[in-house]
């Protein structure tokens, strides 16, 4: 089966930064239809640049080499229709002075070519699917009336309204507390399965990623250092940096010793 998305020799450089430091350095990566791929990395790893490059959202001055191809589509991808994007901070991605139902309806109208009335009905339907209580009332709310987790649910609804083939979640849960994070993770997992979407899950947290991803790709300083099935990466990593990330994970499982964690050198 041909991959949905295929990156070949993708390099991204920002002018003004040191010539030796590419934000992304010759990345080769495939995402299969329906696959859940996690991109793991710390600040400066290039993981967010990767997401922006795939969604064609890089700033105009970025120097891009290599190819972003969509064999699974057979054409260039369009944001909204083919790619849904969920960002870290839902308050920044939602319009503060527009009712959330209207924001989702707007996306529906733009991407599905339906009328306003149908788009609004669809918005309410979607708010129900992302499990907002009382979706009809919620559609009338403004973003500031919702909690962080509820806003992220709205952002997810807006991301999937165009029935995209690929959902990109860029640190979509890192601004949330662990309880809400677990709920949003479960929601993303369920929607991806139901819609048959591919998922690009970008995170700094390898444990979180291991719960949702089929494959994990570890990035460092713009390079892909290791990629493999999630179980293999977690239980049997080959790269020393991957091992470092795993060791730095502070779990709550009682068989691991507290001091053992703190001996690990960064």
């Amino acid at each position: 089966m041909s991959p949905l998305l295929s990156l070949r020799g993708l390099s991204v450089r920002y002018p003004g930064s040191k010539a030796s430091l590419a934000a992304l350095d010759s990345i080769d990566l495939d995402i299969a239809p329906g696959e859940r791929l996690a991109i793991i990395g710390e600040s400066g790893s290039g993981k967010s640049t990767l997401a922006l490059a795939i969604a064609n959202l890089l700033p105009g001055n970025a120097l891009v080499q290599g190819a972003v191809e969509w064999p699974g589509l057979g054409r260039k991808a369009e944001n909204g229709r083919d790619i849904g994007f969920v960002f870290q901070d839902p308050s920044a991605s939602l319009d503060p002075v527009m009712r959330v139902g209207d924001q989702i309806a707007e996306v529906a109208r733009a991407n599905l070519g339906v009328g306003w009335r149908a788009a609004q009905a669809l918005a309410i339907q979607l708010l129900d699917r992302v499990r907002l209580p009382e979706p009809k009332l919620a559609a009338q709310a403004f973003p500031h009336q919702l909690s962080g987790g509820q806003k992220q649910r709205v952002a997810i609804a807006a991301a999937i309204v165009g029935k995209p083939r690929l959902l990109i979640a860029d640190e979509a849960t890192s601004a949330l507390d662990t309880i809400v994070q677990a709920e949003i993770m479960a929601l993303i997992g369920r929607l991806v399965t139901e819609e048959g979407m591919s998922l690009l899950f970008i995170s700094h947290d390898i444990a979180l990623a291991s719960q949702i991803a089929d494959r994990i790709a570890v990035f460092r300083h713009g390079r892909l250092v290791e990629i493999g099935p999630a179980r293999q990466i977690v239980s049997n990593p080959t790269d020393s940096y991957t091992r470092l990330l795993l060791d730095a994970h502070l779990g709550i499982d009682p068989h691991l010793e507290i001091d053992a964690h703190l001996e690990i050198d960064a």
Partner: peptide
């Protein structure tokens, strides 16, 4: 209880991701 069950675990079981 909620905090404990929500804490991310390395490959913390497939049941978690589909449950809500």
């Amino acid at each position: 209880k909620a905090l404990v069950s929500a804490a991310p675990r390395l490959l913390g079981g497939e049941t978690k991701q589909t449950r809500e």
